[in-house]
Simulated scan of single mutants.
Amino acid sequence: MTVTLGEEIMLLSLDDESGMAKERQSAGWAVAGGIVLELVMAGRVSVDRGRVTVTDTTPTGIGLLDDRLKLIDAWASKKSRPPKVTDWLTRDHGKAVSATIDSLRERGLVGEEQRKVLGVFPVRRFPEADGTTERELRARLAALVLHNAVPDERSAGLIALIHAAKLHRLAFPDRSRKEVSPRMEEIADGQWAGESVRTAIRNMQAAMVAVTVATTVTVAS
């Protein structure tokens, strides 16, 4: 089973028992960014100088990615120049979370419960249904960050997104940020991928920082 970067980030965010998303806003940015980065690695999209370009509309065969590819292509085609990737993340991060959760549910990795708060307000929750994938993911992250294993380009991209969106507690709930941040930064800045993917990772990191800072400032004001 191929689990996308966005799905991996969502698995880290969803509480296994309650099914509620932790750090939902920041996780949303990272999920949307993960989908874009996955499309870069699939050769469908490029991200350079902070702008996103669709280079190939051929379906990947993964529904979550192909749906986003169509949406990015339709949106970008209306622009006179390649649009900013931050604009896409701002536009899509909420919808990307819903689409990613639906994908996890369809794959049988999370379940779905519908309840009413105070007997009136409907709430959907997505508790863990099959924890194998998440356990393997957390073991892989621990090997890379805590035990200095050598990452592949997908793992490097995942860690770069988690680090840029400040989701350290989701990935390593029993460790302080100071313990894991230096190694995560080292992986994010390393030479683990081809030049086009490294460029995309750097751009996605910058985009994550920009949108999360903007969100923090907006909430604070």
Rank of each mutant, 00 (worst) to 15 (best):
L161F: 03
R154D: 12
P82M: 07
D73V: 05
V40S: 06
A171Q: 03
A214K: 15
W29A: 00
D152C: 02
L144D: 05
L71D: 10
A164V: 03
I62K: 10
E128Y: 02
L37P: 12
K70T: 15
A165S: 11
R91M: 12
R51Q: 12
P182K: 00
A76C: 07
L141E: 07
V120E: 06
D189N: 13
R198G: 07
R154Y: 12
L167H: 07
Q25F: 11
G157K: 03
T133D: 10
A142V: 04
S196D: 14
S181D: 15
F172V: 06
E17A: 13
V97Q: 13
A188P: 08
L65D: 06
L104S: 04
P127N: 06
V40G: 06
D130Y: 02
D66V: 08
V145P: 10
S77F: 04
V110Q: 11
D15R: 04
G43R: 01
R169A: 15
E8Y: 09
A129S: 13
W29Q: 00
A99S: 11
A193D: 06
N203I: 01
R140M: 09
L39M: 08
W88H: 13
G190A: 00
G190I: 02
T57N: 05
A76Y: 05
V110T: 12
H163V: 00
K166A: 14
R140H: 09
V97T: 09
L71Y: 08
P127R: 00
I162Q: 06
W88N: 02
L158T: 06
A200Q: 07
S18Q: 04
L118C: 07
L37F: 10
S26A: 15
G43P: 03
T57V: 14
R183P: 06
W75D: 06
R140V: 05
P122K: 02
L65H: 10
L167V: 03
P127K: 02
S196G: 03
D73R: 12
E8W: 05
G34V: 05
W29P: 00
L12N: 09
D92S: 14
V52E: 01
L144E: 03
G34W: 02
S196A: 14
F172P: 08
A193C: 04
R49D: 15
M41G: 11
A188F: 07
L167A: 08
V123W: 07
D16N: 09
D15W: 05
A220S: 11
W192R: 01
V150F: 12
H168W: 13
